[in-house]
Amino acid sequence: MKKPAGFLVAAVFAVFSLPLAAQDAPDAGTVLARVGGTEITLGHAIALRAALPDQFQAVPNETLFPAIVEQLIEQELLNQNHADALTLRERITLENEARNFIANAALMGVAAEAATDESVQIAYDAFVAEFGQGEPTTEYNAAHILVRTEEEIQAVVTELESGREFADVAREFSLDGSSAAGGDLGWFGEGVMIEPFEQAVLALEPGEVSDPVETRFGWHVILLNETRAASVPTLEMVRDDLEAQIQREATRAHLEGLREAADIDNRSDAVDPTYLGRSDLLDE
């Protein structure tokens, strides 16, 4: 027996008039589709969307959502149909990819846990203490003019000898990105610049201009503005380096701990290394 139309309208109205808070919000486990007995969830869709190439990142979610769900459905159809038909090469490749993914996830987790604000501060304090115990170092503030050929650098020298300001000549002639700032390179320490350039800087007194210097980038003339004793870099200046050091040490310690606790039987010495190139062994 058909229900009265008025009852259906009232029921629909009652459902949609519920407060939003009473409705369950989707989560990663929300099922978007089923393929046989396999569920495709919102979590699967979110992960696939995040892994799309850069050119898709600006595409609205409203456009991507149905396409992503369809892609996941088709992938699962192919997975169910073909999983048992993988070749030896494909099975081994899949095992390697899964192993690599899990290993990277493990190391990223260890690294993230290790590089805390507290551990970075401890590393920075140790860095500052070591810095203070080292030999005093000098920093240099310089500007340069870079051109391609020896003829061009002679023209630059002529301009400077005529009394023109170094910055003005740099803006007119220099090919370097610093030309807009009059050739200004800011402050730098030893070991930062390539050797011919650095040696020329070290030979200058503040206010002096070098003779032409040739490097692999071209020909330079260099103005040494001033020098100063190197100061301890701030935490923010070295934070990235400290975090990377902490993460390297933490992941290495984690791996060493796993090795010590594991039963590893490495028998590779018994196999001729030339077999590593025998990809034909993967052909069934």
Rank of each mutant, 00 (worst) to 15 (best):
G177E: 14
E249L: 14
S268P: 06
G277K: 13
T215M: 00
L204S: 07
D168P: 10
A167Y: 01
H220G: 01
D263Y: 09
A253Y: 00
R278Q: 07
A180V: 14
L235Q: 04
T274C: 00
L202A: 13
E208T: 12
P233V: 09
F188I: 03
A180E: 14
D176K: 08
E195P: 15
A250W: 02
I222N: 07
T215H: 00
G277L: 13
W187C: 00
E226L: 12
V192K: 14
A261M: 00
I222K: 00
G207K: 02
T234H: 12
L276Q: 13
G207H: 03
N266R: 02
A244C: 13
T251W: 00
S178E: 09
E256M: 06
R216K: 12
E249T: 11
H254P: 09
V232N: 02
F217Y: 15
W219V: 10
G183C: 04
S179K: 08
V271R: 09
T227K: 11
A230M: 03
T234R: 14
F188T: 01
V209H: 04
D269M: 10
R267S: 11
A229K: 14
E243G: 06
E249G: 12
A155V: 05
I153R: 00
M193E: 14
S231V: 15
P233W: 06
D241M: 13
S174W: 05
S179C: 06
D263W: 10
W187T: 03
E205K: 03
E208R: 09
S174V: 08
A253T: 08
I194R: 15
E152G: 02
Q245V: 10
R171G: 05
S231P: 14
G207P: 03
E260Y: 06
A230G: 02
D211K: 04
V209F: 03
R252T: 14
G163K: 04
I194C: 15
